[in-house]
Design a protein around this nucleic acid. Structure first.
Lengths: 207, 207
DNA sequence: AGTTGTCGAGACGGATCGTCTCGATAAGAA
DNA sequence: TTCTTATCGAGACGATCCGTCTCGACAACT
């Protein structure tokens, strides 16, 4: 299964009827709704097709499987048309990172978004190709924003100059993701701030 | 679906034929093999039953669904009969944590174990009840070992006395899990050591 | 000897899979 | 315009798997 070859964004051939953007939008919108309501395991192509008022073949023509469909659905819905802007930069790194993570946790609190993202995550874990597509289209762009904010912090002298930025991103953001996926651990604003503070100051800072 | 009520460890009634432990073992062993070969999505109860030489009903009698079956299969195979011993304590916290994480990464390198654990993780993300069972039977016991090691480090003055141990566990272990699930990031011994060092010293340690 | 629960086997109706074909339609090419 | 090509909705198809149910054999305790 190759992603990117017959993906929904494949280029048009020179002749023939063109793809209907409204159909694409209806499919992705319905796919998001279904995964948000039933989760990934109980999402079926037939259900999406019927609920979107679309033939099954129309879905199979553009997406190789459930995972690719859900990835596009989540991308379309969560990111929307706008370019992702930079992370906040108030001058206080700890405050800014906490704000970003609190906003993330608030998104998880929306049951529809929570279930949709869980569905996508479950699909990604088992499918290396989908995982790569996710990385390139969602994770890596977000990571880039985080790295940029951290680099500014280094320039401002708020972060050690020699720390690897990918390590820093993982240290700060991975604990929140873990608490979310495993449904255990403190995800309140205070708990999130403690993670940021711990990552910045270190667990053995005063010894 | 209630886990723990008709789980495989339910107590025997006073009379009637007893459950065959060999049958249970055959089912769990086959379930592990199947999820290790095909992954969770393509594992079916029918396949496990046929391959284990067992009636479908025998599986449905003891496990409510795929997820519960795979959880037991992984628990049985990975933990085995022995009690999980304590984490190493050489006196050097950084070395010990690095060793534990390197061992974890080496387990991920076994394709069978990798796929089985991915299958279980995918199931857990979408099923709150299964996630709770996983937490109680696998995650929390492991977490306890980690907390104990960290507490000894506090007593030895190698860790700040006021840090929350659950926060510490997440900071140290979550980054490795993230790199594994998303298949991106440095999982070499050096990369793992960098995570431990970063968590202990902090990203803004010398500013 | 009687009771009770487990076991392997497989039938069952239903859901969904992914492929295939159909007739209608739209858009560029000749 | 006319022809060619691709998309669209609809649904038939054989296949797999779901979860439930029933059967006859068997084992363990009363």
């Amino acid at each position: 299964m190759r992603y990117g070859a017959r993906m929904p964004t494949a280029q048009q051939p020179s002749t023939g009827r063109r793809r209907n953007p409204a159909t694409r939008a209806a499919i992705l919108g319905t796919a998001f709704d279904v995964v948000a309501e039933l989760g990934y395991a109980r999402l079926t192509i037939e259900k999406v097709a019927a609920q979107a008022g679309v033939g099954k073949q129309t879905i199979y023509r553009w997406w190789p499987n459930k995972g690719a469909l859900v990835l596009d659905a989540v991308l379309e819905r969560s990111l929307g048309p706008g370019e992702p802007g930079d992370l906040p930069d108030s001058g206080d790194l700890e405050d800014d990172l906490t704000a970003v993570l609190v906003a993330t946790v608030e998104e998880f609190a929306d049951p529809a978004f929570d279930r949709a993202l869980r569905g996508l995550t479950a699909a990604i874990i088992e499918d290396p190709e989908l995982s790569q597509a996710y990385r390139e289209r969602l994770d890596e762009p977000m990571r880039d924003l985080k790295r940029r904010r951290l680099r500014r912090a280094q320039e401002a002298g708020q972060l050690d100059a020699d720390v690897d930025l990918d390590l820093a991103v993982d240290l700060i953001f991975a604990p929140v993701t873990r608490r979310w996926t495993e449904r255990s651990g403190d995800l309140t604003p205070d708990g999130v701030r403690a993670i940021v503070r711990g990552a910045l100051r270190g667990l053995a800072g005063s010894v």
